[in-house]
Design a protein around this nucleic acid. Structure first.
Length: 115
DNA sequence: CGTGTGACCGGCG
DNA sequence: ACGCCGGCCACAC
C-alpha cells in the first residue's frame, strides 16, 4: 500500500547527508557532490543548501564549507556570524572564516558513509 | 518551454 | 604563484 510518494529530490539527498555529519566535523561541497555522484557539480550542493532555508529542516549547513575550509556560505545564514558561532560551539575551531585543521575535522561522506 | 542562476571545483595561461 | 574561465545539474520564474 503506497503510503506516500516520497519524491527524493536532490535537496532531500543533500540534506540527509549533511544532517548525517557528525558533530564537530565538517565536509566540503565537492565531497557531498561526489557522494551524490555529481562531483563535477558541487554548485548544486551549495545551491541546495540555500534551499535548505526554505526546506523547513534543520540542516547544519554550517558544517558544509568549500574545499578550502572557508566559510563561504556564512553570508547566507541568518547572521554572518551564526555559522562561525555554531561551528565553534560544536568544537570546530574557526579563524578568519576558515576552519582550523580542516583536513583533521574533514568528514568525507563517500568515505565514512560509503555504501 | 526556455533562460538564468547558484554557498563550487578543477584546469589552464 | 595568481587569476581567469568553463563546466555541470537541478530548480525557479
Amino acid at each position: 500500500m503506497p503510503i506516500e510518494k516520497k519524491e527524493y529530490s536532490f535537496f532531500e539527498d543533500v540534506f540527509e547527508v549533511v544532517m548525517k555529519i557528525p558533530k564537530g566535523r565538517v565536509t566540503s561541497y565537492g565531497a557531498i557532490a561526489n557522494y551524490l555522484g555529481t562531483k563535477m557539480s558541487a554548485r548544486m550542493v551549495g545551491w541546495a543548501m540555500n534551499a535548505s532555508h526554505s526546506s523547513g529542516l534543520n540542516v547544519p549547513a554550517q558544517r558544509v564549507v568549500n574545499r578550502n575550509g572557508m566559510l563561504t556560505g556564512k553570508h547566507h545564514f541568518a547572521t554572518p556570524t551564526q555559522m562561525e558561532s555554531l561551528l565553534k560551539k560544536e568544537g570546530v575551531k574557526v579563524e578568519k572564516d576558515c576552519v582550523v585543521n580542516f583536513k583533521n575535522v574533514f568528514w568525507d561522506p563517500s568515505k565514512e558513509l560509503s555504501l
